[in-house]
Design a protein around this nucleic acid. Structure first.
Lengths: 233, 233
DNA sequence: CAGTGGTCTAGACCACAGT
DNA sequence: CTGTGGTCTAGACCACTGC
């Protein structure tokens, strides 16, 4: 059974996440919520406070409660796709496909992924743009054994990260994070000087023990920051 | 002004973080809390639910509320001290103290840490060596309000990261990870070329809501890699 | 069955920020 | 001054779970 305040949370969250209520939009006052749901003010308060905890809403006395600005650089180290990451910065996203092929995994790729030598993979390289500027260079292989539908997918409409998230539930992911100088080709693509400091993230993902995908993401170091929050464990 | 439920949260959190209440220990029932604080059951409920949200407490009907087992989740990106990190690489560790002072926090440091302007901090800068080679440059401030013993500590025998871990239980940590070019002074200390790609990690740590320490760690990019493993949820 | 947590109510008072 | 959020009360009923 879903409690009433959970239902209110869901009802308020939907238009925020869908973008129907943009940042700055005022959500109903507690009294209005209480009236329209036929509940007490405390119940409405509980729901709105939950949205504050989730960072979706900010409250100001006398003025009301407002959809929060997307946090400036809160790229938590979760699995998520780059389009979403760019959208949360309030910028337009597009991706340009630089290469797309189905082939056998190289020896280095097999070592990285744990795939059997010669396994078939879909390989794709693309450049992500945020607000018209190069944002991130993505090089990815996808195991065709784990995701056969990838063979005929061109990733023209939906970048591979989001495409995979729609299809494959992941059970484990590993990130390796390094700083490295931009190689000349990468520097040209990202629009930075050759040798400039870049943040390189390699992400390997498994689903139920089977390797799914390996992505290598290179961000210009001066424009990107990873944020990770932890509690003891 | 601190609200009553916040005070209850703090009072319950302290013995949990200090280890006085080990995992499995039953905390007072809501009715007992309400009675001992002279408040209504809702207020006690709000406090205990906050601890559930923080992952410190689990609740079971009819039995009560219990200190949670430390989650086996989380990543390698945990708090750990650099001596340990170096030891796990099989190298000898030593640290050289470059600066040590007690002073008032600068405006920038207050903004970063959330400390009140002019708060007293212990500041220390040190260079860590692994197997004789420079490994990491650490610049750290410690809130003297949170850790008064730091005032007279020189950190000569035990580096501040490990020293703090011995004394202060942490309840929250945030990492910010960037790639950046080595400034000339840092390049000289780390033995890399000026402008070389470095991995910069800023780590802020809180204990029970109070800011404890801010550390800025700079690693040569070509010699260091962060690894983080994640599971969903 | 008894006792706990889970939820909710219909009030209340206060602090604070705009007007 | 007004209206909002922030907090709190003293009840209440229910669901679940262990005895």
């Amino acid at each position: 059974m879903e409690s009433l305040h959970q239902r209110i949370v869901a009802d308020l969250e939907a238009p925020i996440l869908a973008g129907e209520w943009p940042p700055g939009h005022r959500i109903p006052f507690e009294m209005e919520l209480a009236e329209s749901y036929g509940c007490s003010r405390m119940t409405a308060n509980k729901a709105v406070m939950e949205l504050v905890r989730r960072g979706l809403v900010e409250r100001r006395r006398k003025l009301g409660s407002f959809v929060a600005q997307p946090q400036a650089q809160s790229a938590v180290l979760e699995i998520r796709d780059i389009a979403q990451e760019v959208a949360s910065l309030g910028l337009a996203h597009r991706a340009e496909i630089l290469a797309r092929a189905n082939r056998r995994a190289s020896r280095a790729e097999c070592r990285l992924s744990g795939l059997a030598p010669g396994s078939a993979v879909a390989a794709v390289e693309l450049l992500h743009f945020a607000g018209g500027r190069p944002f991130c260079l993505e090089a990815r292989i996808i195991s065709l054994a784990a995701v056969p539908e990838a063979e005929d997918e061109r990733f023209a409409t939906r970048p591979p990260g989001a495409w995979l998230l729609d299809r494959v539930p992941w059970s484990r992911a590993e990130h390796r994070i390094r700083a490295e100088p931009a190689a000349p080709r990468i520097a040209g693509l990202l629009g930075v000087a050759a040798g400039a400091a870049c943040l390189a993230i390699e992400r390997r993902t498994w689903s139920g023990g089977a390797f799914v995908t390996h992505a290598r993401l290179v961000y210009p170091g001066d424009r990107h920051e990873l944020v990770a929050e932890f509690a003891p464990g």
